[in-house]
Design a protein around this nucleic acid. Sequence first.
DNA 1: ATAGTAAAAAATCTCGAGAAAACCATTGAC
DNA 2: GTCAATGGTTTTCTCGAGATTTTTTACTAT
Lengths: 237, 237
Amino acid sequence: MNDLANVPDLSGHQADEPKTLAEAAYRQLRRDIIEGVHRPGEKLRVEHLKDQYAVGAGTLREALQLLVTDALVVAQGQRGFRVAPISLDDFEDITRTRVLLETVALQQSIELGDDTWEANVVASFHMLSRAEEKLVDGTNASREEWELRNRAFHEVLISASTSRWLRHFQNILYLQSERYRRLSLFRQPISRDVHAEHQAIVDAALARNSKEAARILTEHVLRTLEAVRKLPAEMIS
Amino acid sequence: MNDLANVPDLSGHQADEPKTLAEAAYRQLRRDIIEGVHRPGEKLRVEHLKDQYAVGAGTLREALQLLVTDALVVAQGQRGFRVAPISLDDFEDITRTRVLLETVALQQSIELGDDTWEANVVASFHMLSRAEEKLVDGTNASREEWELRNRAFHEVLISASTSRWLRHFQNILYLQSERYRRLSLFRQPISRDVHAEHQAIVDAALARNSKEAARILTEHVLRTLEAVRKLPAEMIS
DNA sequence: ATAGTAAAAAATCTCGAGAAAACCATTGAC
DNA sequence: GTCAATGGTTTTCTCGAGATTTTTTACTAT
């Protein structure tokens, strides 16, 4: 079916279905950290969390180790684990690095993408648009689905890039920026402009205008940075 | 002394001294994988390795998990761990991505670096040059020291970059390329040219000629790719 | 012979208890 | 009053044994 099946997965532990308890705990923890259930800088005590996530101590330890990979958790020598802190500087760094990688990957993708890629772009954009419509009812589930499809959309855009490493790093950075975007959503919900920007990227991509697509993508990503900049400083502790 | 001490370490588990058994095992394993003791694609059975590295099963598991972070080991669902395979395509990807990141970081560094940075560049270049001289006796220890100092040199060059993420990703890619460079050394030892190239980078960096420095660095990194390309195919299994 | 099934073997994954280290509050000395 | 040392408490780290899952081997029927 899919001849990429036995290609080594660079992202390691992001398979479609959690096959092990440690991975299941890892996913729950990851979501909770991104969602802000565990606040930035918070200490993550294994003894407390193992009950909360219903796994053994060693297993939870493994889950935490996996989160270190994504830089959502920091491990300090003999002093346990801690939710990675956030800061405006950090988000600026994340955003700029992401722009660098994602634009290069996007231009590659536009040059190399075939018909199937085009179809995937159109399809994932459609899925995202539908999710946007459901956003108006403001439920948590609808927002979560939007996040999922937004991520899928951005992934598909660069999926025709030949560089597995670019995609790998982009994955990590996207995950990071999700934490910050969640903060900006407190202030202002996802706006109409976002849809227009996505549309513009799709148009440029299908027209094989890689320069223009990269330009729009850059603006698009930087817009979130501006939104976070306007937040009260105490929110970005 | 160093006010960067409490900045969260992005690389997570690359502190100067291993404070835990798991980390010690991680380092030994990492060296063994890079050195080729454990061949690419080889299965890493916990039961066998725990005796070899003198730690418990759970501890070795953690060490393996850390190696997944560096993409030197791949974990597959419920089927254990395996040394990440190598391929020419992969090395090409690694090299090109590394060039992209490292040149950007280097240009930033050259623009922002202060006197201390300049001093560090000169110092690490000197250390590297001394190690090159000792290379003639061809011992394993001298080559290992050269690797260490070469890495330190490249790290110092981009150390003035403000982007922690660029440096983080560069670290990972450098580690990866070390595996491949080791292969190329079978054929031809480290040549005179390398020294001249390093010298040229230092000169351009101190002259604050960021464009030129980036150009030389690019050529420098691509040269190793060419060397690996000339290897017999069966060496890059 | 081949294919499918089932039991046996090996390896992984999971857990809880013990050892080692870090943390905190109290005490004592200067 | 400030600082250093000490002991108790908490937390992390480590280990080995049991439960699941995967892989291998052997067997039977077509």
